[in-house]
Design a protein around this nucleic acid. Structure first.
Lengths: 109, 109
DNA sequence: AATAATACCTAGATAGTCAAGGTATCAAGG
DNA sequence: CCTTGATACCTTGACTATCTAGGTATTATT
């Protein structure tokens, strides 16, 4: 992250779920997608991403499957589950509540 | 915090600076002020606040002084310094950048 | 042949927050 | 008078998300 690491804490899981809601992706591509969508404000570290993916899978929010076509590196794709979609919705609600509260304290609202 | 603790990481220092920008306050009152302004979304733990205050003071962003009037508990007031105001401005800019980036990834923008 | 990009991963350190506790004063209610 | 709750300061130990830094391997480019 270009952004101070601490600000980001807690939002990365949500960001991962969010890009996967729009279609299955493999790890490396998730990093690129988050960088692109954020206009390169975020550049998620791989050492951050993979533990998050494993944790989200363990919680049942994601399912993984390997794709191994010819002339292509092996890629581990992730698909968001129904449980994952619900979790994402909850986290988005929480994000709204959090960011609104911050802006109230800052005097923006 | 009612908000998941991780989301809050990194923003608390900014919130403290922000409420002090509007006038000197002592620790206990800072907690109340942040709770009030955020409509009780935030309820900062004292175990979180005091280390933050000490750290901000150490960095030169705050200055402390005791007030000990009659019929009153001893209160340790904090005043934001010029350096603190600059830091706050920088953190507000970073917050804007961060929250905008999150909302871009979430597809709100 | 060397380098950069792709693609997966882990281990140890760092740092912010929390829960839980301590100390002490004051006001209100029983 | 005594207990309770609010005020007001603080510290310690645990938790956990992230980072830095490393590892392995393949493919494309120069």
């Amino acid at each position: 992250m270009r952004i101070s690491k601490e600000l980001a804490k807690g939002s990365n899981g949500m960001l991962v779920l969010s890009v996967l809601e729009k279609g299955d992706k493999y790890g490396y591509l998730i990093v690129k997608e988050i960088a692109n969508l954020s206009d390169n404000v975020f550049s998620m570290n791989e050492g951050t991403l993979y533990p998050i993916l494993h944790s989200l899978e363990k919680e049942g929010y994601l399912e993984a499957y390997w794709v191994e076509a010819e002339n292509m590196r092996k890629r581990k794709y992730y698909r968001i589950t129904e449980k994952g979609r619900k979790e994402l919705a909850a986290q988005k609600t929480e994000w709204k509540s959090y960011s609104t509260a911050v802006e109230k304290v800052l005097g923006y609202v």
